[in-house]
Every structure is written in structure tokens, then in C-alpha cells.
Computed example of a mutant assay.
Amino acid sequence: MTRPVAHSRPYDLGRGFSVEFKLQHGQLNAVWSPRVPHGRRGRQLLPAYKAARNRFLSSLTPDLGTIMVVDL
């Protein structure tokens, strides 16, 4: 039986926010600290969030192969 990939890594996004990405059992979760930003603050942090998410997913490609992200 193959073990599911379990991996996590925190990223400082600036402006007092951080996010920890966790991949376990094929599911990606983002855990924000101190909370999920909304409105203007959320829009300001979006580029840093996407860059951190892409770095995290890129670090997994040797184990998982190609990963596709769809932003809605």
C-alpha cells in the first residue's frame, strides 16, 4: 500500500499574516494566522499568497509529478 504524501510548510506573507500549506491525503489546505484576511487586506496579500502557494507546490513536484492550479 502506498502512503499518501503528507507535507506542510509555513510562509510569512508580511503585514502580520502567515499561511501554512498542508498537503495530506491528496488535499491541500491553507491555515492562516492570525485569520483569513478579507477585503482590501486580502487583495493586498493575494500576490504573496500565490507566490508562497506556488513555491510550496513546486517543492512537491519531485514526489507528485505535474500539478495544475486553477484560480477561480
Rank of each mutant, 00 (worst) to 15 (best):
F56P: 06
L60F: 09
D12N: 14
F17H: 11
R15T: 01
R35I: 00
Q24C: 06
V31M: 00
G16K: 00
S8R: 15
R40I: 11
F21A: 02
A30T: 06
T2F: 10
G26T: 10
P62S: 11
K22G: 05
Q24R: 11
V36N: 02
F21I: 05
Y49A: 03
T66L: 12
E20F: 01
S8V: 07
Y11S: 02
R41F: 05
P37V: 01
V70N: 11
P34S: 01
R43N: 14
R35M: 01
P10N: 10
T2K: 14
S18T: 07
H25M: 11
E20W: 02
L23C: 06
L57P: 12
S58W: 07
P47D: 08
H7Q: 13
S59Y: 06
L57W: 04
T2W: 09
V70E: 12
K50Q: 14
V36H: 01
Q24D: 14
G26D: 09
E20G: 04
L28D: 06
R55V: 09
R35V: 00
R55W: 04
T61F: 07
K50A: 09
L28H: 09
N54D: 15
Q24F: 05
R55S: 15
W32F: 15
S8M: 10
K22M: 03
K22R: 14
L46V: 04
F56S: 10
K50P: 03
T61V: 12
K22P: 02
L23I: 09
G16P: 02
T61Y: 06
R9Q: 14
P10V: 07
L64E: 05
V5R: 04
G16A: 03
I67N: 05
T61I: 08
P62K: 13
P10K: 08
M68V: 12
E20H: 03
W32N: 01
V5F: 03
W32S: 00
G39T: 03
H25R: 14
V19S: 01
Q44W: 13
S59D: 13
G14I: 02
P37I: 00
G42Q: 03
H38D: 05
M68W: 09
H38M: 06
V36F: 03
Y11L: 02
Q44E: 15
